[in-house]
Design a protein around this nucleic acid. Structure first.
Lengths: 101, 101
DNA sequence: ATTATATATTGCTATATCGCGATTTAACGA
DNA sequence: TCGTTAAATCGCGATATAGCAATATATAAT
């Protein structure tokens, strides 16, 4: 993980809504039990929109930020986009921060 | 540590210069061996200014940000201000992040 | 083909952050 | 008291970020 990438990751975490999203995705069955599709796909954008209470376009941008940072992945199924945490990346980020901070 | 405080801490880390400063303060004897005063006081602001290459006022603001977040402490001795890491706070921050992320 | 749904993208405004030079404040020394 | 040094604070312009509504795009359903 380059220092530029690390920077992008920390910046991605520097907004409370994006941290909330990461947290919700940690336990989808707890926060998105109402999803029609299997949670194994991930959580679809619309439900995340709802949960934040922000506009669709705003949340879409937040999800893009988290994805660019590598924290989440997107899986497109039909007309839906499902998001899930990249646990390996998150683990790697935390250990990098533990070393370097 | 409240969620507001956590937010302030992450935001404080979201600037590369501020992370640099925290890193330099980890090994003052390595990065500030030219300091006239004992390094046990901490590192004085002027030397940090120099090392960043940014203006005095800019660095002063960065140091204030780090201090507000709790990551560093200031010790005033005569006309100098010495800064040092708050290791306990940093450790606490890291463990909080490890849990919550 | 048309319509509906899901979501990304665009264009915009408002606010926050960064960096600087100039000024102020504080402490020291002559 | 006056000049010097250290560092905070102020005022400013430039850039980045956040939010929204509107639009575009892609898929699905009728």
């Amino acid at each position: 993980m380059s220092s530029t990438e690390l920077d992008e990751m920390i910046k991605a975490l520097s907004h409370p809504v994006r941290r909330d999203i990461l947290n919700w995705l940690k336990q989808p069955e707890l926060y998105f039990s109402d999803q029609e599709h299997p949670l194994s796909f991930g959580v679809c954008a619309g439900l995340i929109d709802q949960k934040t209470g922000l506009s669709q376009s705003t949340v879409s941008a937040h999800l893009a930020t988290l994805q660019r940072a590598g924290f989440i992945s997107r899986k497109k199924v039909g007309q839906w986009n499902f998001f899930a945490r990249n646990e390996e990346v998150i683990t790697q980020f935390l250990s990098r921060l533990n070393e370097q901070l």
